[in-house]
Write a protein that binds this DNA or RNA. Structure first.
Lengths: 350, 350
DNA sequence: TTTAGCACTCTATCTATACGAGTGCTAATA
DNA sequence: TATTAGCACTCGTATAGATAGAGTGCTAAA
């Protein structure tokens, strides 16, 4: 038996342990692994190998006389090189896409359905990182006067259906004519500018200009600054928190569940993490301690971006205990992300 | 001792039991009650009275040799006639109002802060029933063309800062001129109409009219129908789900927690319930089985509407186990509701 | 009417014990 | 040299019995 054969068997055994543990949530013993292994081997041999796997830091024992449980590193190896991600059939993908199309074709509703679908199919909590105007570029704005000192500022982004409205209170009254002038000014001078840079750009102009534009720039700045300051960079739609509590690991230790839910309440930090993970067009898996967020100690997520015309518009993901069916969930998350991308890409619900 | 004295003592004892149980989450025995009672009585007497209270269905024993626990009916009597709701000092109210005012003055942010405040002070989950355009009357609409067959429909309500935007896909292209005509038509012909009636009204006109208006009515109907169909009647902002899991009753029985979180996911039914409870300007308390919602078996909520100029704009509430500090939570919920109302009433953040 | 006293009930806790799952090691085996 | 049968050992879990303690309801006396 050469080295490669050795490796292969080790890996196979690791996979069996992980898959059995994922299915049962109970530490896996050598006997069970031996029974599952294709070329029949004795449990004693398995024990030796499992000992090695433990020394390698891929498995661990809850206590001396228990079976083995995968470590974060064990899952990592499995996810990176061992698991095979199932393929969904054309029909299944069609079915999913069909379910994502629904009565209402707005992006908001589409993402809501996607969350529901993920949660239902994965039987886990799911999250969706939804695009907001603020990450796009200014395509158009509209001002709707609501009173002399109050105006609704409608921001429209250059990507599919990104828009937002914000009420802005003004110190100085704003006349009808001024509104028209402002809209014209902004829609001619600032289009194409990323929303994030709009305020900076206006501030710079304010310093430079002293001419007749000054007033326009000043007022635009006032309004856009306020409108943009209340607009979040992203939104996180979370669904299926109840599934967290239902998992055996969290039932056994309600404190763990509490900490996770507590952590989830600070959506900000999860968003940050997910965003930084979704820069490429790939499924990302974060396992246990790889997630440096308070409360997520025993959790993993699988996330994938939806990419339209080369741009990452947002992402979807499934969140659960480290004991997660990574192959299945990965396939699921990727399929849903692709479905969303294809729906968004093809524009209006066909 | 006359009948009234009897009653008074019974009630006093019920109150003591409830307050002790709320504080400790442990069944309350006669000894403890005797020690707390002002005019010193023996535990034997208390036992007799507690026996009566049990017969009356206000207390119950988890098992023969345990102390007593309040029933839903016991809490109900306590809430209706026995508890005294604490008063917040002027300073405390100011402090709260101050915390509700924040950097951002939009209603959305205000309500978000209110939820955070409630959750933090009550150490329980809180919810907020937020007003939407759909429950107000049409004050103005604006149409922003996003493409030849796509338009952003901005709905503005006749109440403080109620508005919404929806993208509407059109079958037929829409020209600039048509947009102007439509906006003019809607903003002159339909203002003041409750949004709920807008579609009906247009449909009736569609049947009646065959003249030149027909086209306008038809297209308005198309757009408004789509825009309104995706607009919810209400929104429910839920916060502090983690506190639910932290409560001892739910820690002991994770299944209960799971059922409640599951129930919470269907925000629709909770909204319905809360809305129907908040028709008057009063704090409403729902105790245990009085909430006919699946999953809420061992839960109560305390809710209060925020009322501006005689109209119920929305509501706030605290949700937790039936073992809740009703006096404190009631005071809290009412104070927050009033604060919100006063901020909304006085218009822009003063 | 109240209360001291007491027997009774039931749970929670502890201990002891047995059980069994799973391990690691050793020695025999192919 | 790799594998495996065998076995002693460990340790968690399940079971049962004993104990303590909290709280009750009842009775009889004050």
């Amino acid at each position: 038996m050469n080295v490669s054969d050795f490796e292969q068997r080790r890996n196979k055994i690791l996979s069996v342990v992980i898959e059995a543990y994922v299915a049962s949530a109970v530490p896996v013993g050598s006997e069970l692994v031996a029974r599952r292994l294709r070329p029949s081997v004795s449990s004693a041999t398995i024990r030796n190998v499992m000992g090695e796997l433990e020394e390698a830091g891929l498995l661990e024992q809850p206590h001396t006389s228990a079976g083995r449980v995968p470590t974060d590193r064990g899952y990592r190896l499995y996810v990176d090189s061992l698991m095979d991600v199932p393929w969904f059939s054309r029909e299944q993908v069609m079915e999913m896409t069909h379910r994502l199309h629904g009565e209402e074709s707005e992006v908001e509703q589409l993402l809501g359905r996607a969350g529901g679908l993920l949660t239902e199919l994965a039987q886990q909590a799911s999250f969706i990182l939804a695009p907001t105007v603020k990450r796009t570029a200014l395509r158009q704005i509209e001002l709707v006067p609501l009173g002399v000192r109050k105006v609704l500022c409608v921001l429209i982004g250059d990507q599919e259906e990104t828009y937002a409205s914000h009420v802005v209170e003004l110190i100085e009254p704003l006349s009808r004519e001024e509104v028209l002038a402002l809209v014209r000014f902004i829609n001619t001078q600032l289009t194409g500018l990323p929303y994030r840079d709009v305020v900076d750009s206006l501030e710079r102009r304010l310093i430079a200009e002293t001419d007749s534009f000054y007033h326009l720039v000043k007022r635009s700045l006032d309004i856009l600054q306020h409108a943009l300051s209340t607009e979040p960079e992203e939104r996180l739609l979370l669904e299926g928190a109840s599934y967290i509590v239902a998992q055996p690991e969290f039932r056994r230790d309600p404190g763990k569940a509490h900490r996770l839910l507590k952590g989830l309440e600070d959506a900000e930090s999860l968003m940050e993490q997910v965003r930084s993970d979704l820069t490429t067009d790939r499924v990302r898996v974060r396992i246990g301690r790889e997630l440096p967020l308070a409360g997520y100690e025993a959790c993993s997520y699988v996330a994938a971006p939806f990419v339209v015309e080369g741009r990452v518009l947002g992402g979807v993901g499934v969140l659960g205990p480290t004991r997660m069916d990574y192959p299945r969930v990965s396939a699921l998350v990727e399929a849903v992300a692709r479905s969303i991308a294809s729906i968004l890409g093809r524009g209006p619900a066909a």
